[in-house]
């Protein structure tokens, strides 16, 4: 349902999104049965295709041509997919979006190879673009994303981290790839530097808002909506913004500590979620997400007149207000 709503927001791009979907299938074709199955499995699981959409919208500020732009849009989605496959190994996740993960269907090693394969295909596709700057932006982004994930593992279980630590982490974990998607579309389409710069900032703010909402939803959505137990982030030791905002609440802190010690029982998880949902932390986190969203909308105002400005605004608002 939510995905349907999102698709309506970029209805103008539907035919181009279909091109991207087809290209994704082609890109993931493999002589290995396991890799082919794993890739198709990932494609069928769907996803919002937010990154390709942002590439295409960014490209609308330059010389837009889907035959060129698919060479940037497809790799961005593939890189995202590859990182999810490896993340599932790191998180020992059995399910993603309610479906078995590659690692659970085969094993960790096959998941590593699948991730490496998808990542390689992404770069292969990207080399259809000869723009040096685009490659420098993407490669720098990829290195920084991994650095963010490394920090995430370092910060795990550390309840004494600051909100600044959290922002630094989600910037690299999520915001950078969305930011680069917006920027790369513009760069590859030859848009002005200032346009690419505003799009980059827009993507960054949207990405920050998006991740904060994601972290809130991990506590407020149902197990069924999430396709995994609500509160999984904390159970895995990831300290998110709502938890950081609630950690000094004496009614909640003991539950946080229990979760981090790995001895939270099911009934305690339910109590914890109830207490979190009725705390100020959720509203405060929403407020902070909204501040980022407002900054994103300001960046749109700086962009030259273009019909896609409305789409950027609508998608940003959707991402900042989504229910799950």
């Amino acid at each position: 349902m939510e995905k349907m709503k999102l698709k309506l927001l970029y209805a103008d791009l539907q035919s181009d999104i279909r091109v991207i979907e087809k290209e994704l299938e082609t890109a993931l074709d493999s002589s290995s049965h396991y890799l082919k199955d794993a890739s198709l499995h990932l494609l069928k699981a769907g996803g919002k295709r937010i990154r390709p959409v942002f590439v295409l919208l960014g490209a609308k500020f330059g010389q837009y041509n889907i035959d060129d732009m698919k060479n940037v849009a497809v790799p961005l989605e593939l890189i995202h997919m590859a990182s999810l496959v490896h993340d599932d190994v790191i998180d020992d996740a059995e399910l993603r979006r309610g479906r078995p993960t590659v690692k659970s269907q085969w094993n960790n090693r096959v998941a590593m190879y699948a991730g490496d394969f998808i990542f390689a295909r992404a770069l292969e596709y990207m080399t259809n673009i000869q723009n040096e700057k685009a490659h420098q932006i993407l490669s720098k982004t990829m290195v920084e994303i991994v650095q963010g994930e490394i920090i995430q593992i370092e910060d795990k279980m550390h309840l004494n981290q600051s909100i600044r630590d959290y922002f630094r982490r989600i910037k690299r974990k999520t915001a950078l790839l969305i930011s680069s998607s917006c920027q790369l579309g513009a760069v590859a389409a030859g848009a002005d530097d200032s346009v690419a710069h505003h799009l980059k900032k827009f993507g960054y703010y949207v990405g920050m808002s998006f991740q904060i909402i994601d972290d809130v939803l991990d506590l407020t959505a149902t197990d069924k909506q999430l396709g995994k137990p609500a509160g999984s982030d904390l159970l895995q030791g990831n300290i998110t913004l709502p938890v950081l905002l609630a950690k000094n609440d004496s009614a909640i802190r003991p539950y946080i500590e229990k979760a981090l010690n790995g001895d939270m029982k099911e009934d305690e998880r339910q109590v914890f979620l109830k207490k979190m949902r009725s705390s100020n932390a959720i509203n405060d986190a929403y407020h902070i997400s909204n501040l980022y969203l407002q900054k994103a909308l300001k960046e749109i105002e700086e962009l030259p007149a273009n019909s896609v400005k409305k789409s950027l605004k609508d998608i940003a608002l959707y991402m900042g207000k989504r229910k799950f």
Partner: peptide
Amino acid sequence: VLAGDYYSGM
């Protein structure tokens, strides 16, 4: 896992 991804990025 991340080390491998980092070296790939590099």
